[in-house]
């Protein structure tokens, strides 16, 4: 029997299947855990509706908890409140940057992300702000494709939603 914090610590050992430098807890997809002896309920929310990594995360959660003594693991999906990049911790953002992915630049609360002007995104390699958006859609649903005009490196930007 673990406390809620201990369960979160266990789940923190599970890396994001597509961005392995951050955990699924840091990503903010684990919304709630409640255990009752040998059985446990975990509530998760998808980053994007069609994110193909969600099934993998669900399987990873089941596996991790079963390895740690839970016989029945029930994972359910909620859509509300909708996942937002605001839930990424500052520490997680730093990890993304070190990995070569530009973290979301602003909070969604300022709504500027809804305007048509692409943001000046900082290049994760040379830290230049002189970058340009190549495509709003990148290698995964959560990322856009940018290129730095100083060091010329293309890079992924974690979209702000």
């Amino acid at each position: 029997m673990h406390t809620e914090k201990e369960i979160f610590d266990l789940l923190s050992e599970i890396p994001d299947p597509e961005i392995p430098v951050i955990s699924i807890v840091e990503l903010g997809v684990i919304r709630k855990v409640s255990s009752n002896g040998k059985s446990i309920d975990v509530v998760i929310t998808p980053t994007y509706s069609g994110c193909p990594a969600m099934k993998q995360m669900e399987d990873d959660v089941c596996k991790k908890l079963k390895e740690n003594g839970y016989e029945t693991v029930h994972v359910s999906m909620v859509y509300s409140p909708a996942w937002t990049t605001d839930w990424l911790s500052e520490e997680a953002k730093l990890k993304l940057q070190k990995y070569g992915i530009a973290p979301p630049e602003e909070s969604t609360s300022d709504k500027s992300f809804l305007s048509n002007k692409p943001k000046a995104v900082t290049c994760p390699r040379c830290k230049s702000k002189n970058s340009t958006m190549v495509s709003q859609f990148g290698s995964t649903a959560c990322k856009a494709l940018y290129q730095c005009k100083d060091c010329m490196e293309p890079f992924d930007y974690f979209k702000c939603i």
């Binding site: 998808p46 509706s49 069609g50 994110c51 495509s135 990148g138 649903a141 494709l145």
Partner: peptide
């Protein structure tokens, strides 16, 4: 390539919405 990725991403979002 970028447009290929864009449309498949959009398609995925729509499949995800349909699934829910």
């Amino acid at each position: 390539l970028e447009e290929d990725l864009a449309l498949t991403n959009i398609s995925l979002d729509l499949f995800g919405r349909a699934k829910s």
